[in-house]
Amino acid sequence: MIAALALAIGVVLGVVFHPTVPVGLQPYLPIAVVAALDAVFGALRAMLDGIFDDKVFVVSFIANVLVAALIVFLGDQLGVGSQLSTGVVVVLGIRIFSNAAAIRRHLFRA
C-alpha cells in the first residue's frame, strides 16, 4: 500500500516538475527505465510469493539500474552500444514477461 503510494507520488512529482535529464545521461534513460520496471515487477512477484524483502529490493533496484547503464556505457565506448542495449532490453523484457505471468497466476489462479 505504502509502496504503491510512493510510486504514485514519484510519478506525480515527475509529471509536475519534469526534471530535465542531462544530455550526457539521456542515452541511459530508456535502459534505466527498463531495469527499474524489471525490479518493480520482480518485487511485486516476490510480495505475492510472500518472500519480499526490503533490503533485497533496494539493493537489486539500484544495482540493476546501474549495471544496465554501465553495460550501455561500455557498449558505447566499444562501438556496440545499440546492440548491447538491445540485448539488455531483450533479457529484461523476458524477465518482466515471466514475472508478469507469475503475478497473473497469483491474482487469477490461471
Partner: peptide
C-alpha cells in the same frame, strides 16, 4: 521500509521523466 518508499518514488520519477521527455 522508508528506503523502499524512496526507491519506489525515484522509480516513479524515472518513469514519468522518461514519458514526459
Amino acid at each position: 521500509a522508508l528506503l523502499v518508499g524512496i526507491v519506489l518514488g525515484v522509480a516513479g520519477v524515472l518513469f514519468a521523466t522518461s514519458a514526459v521527455a
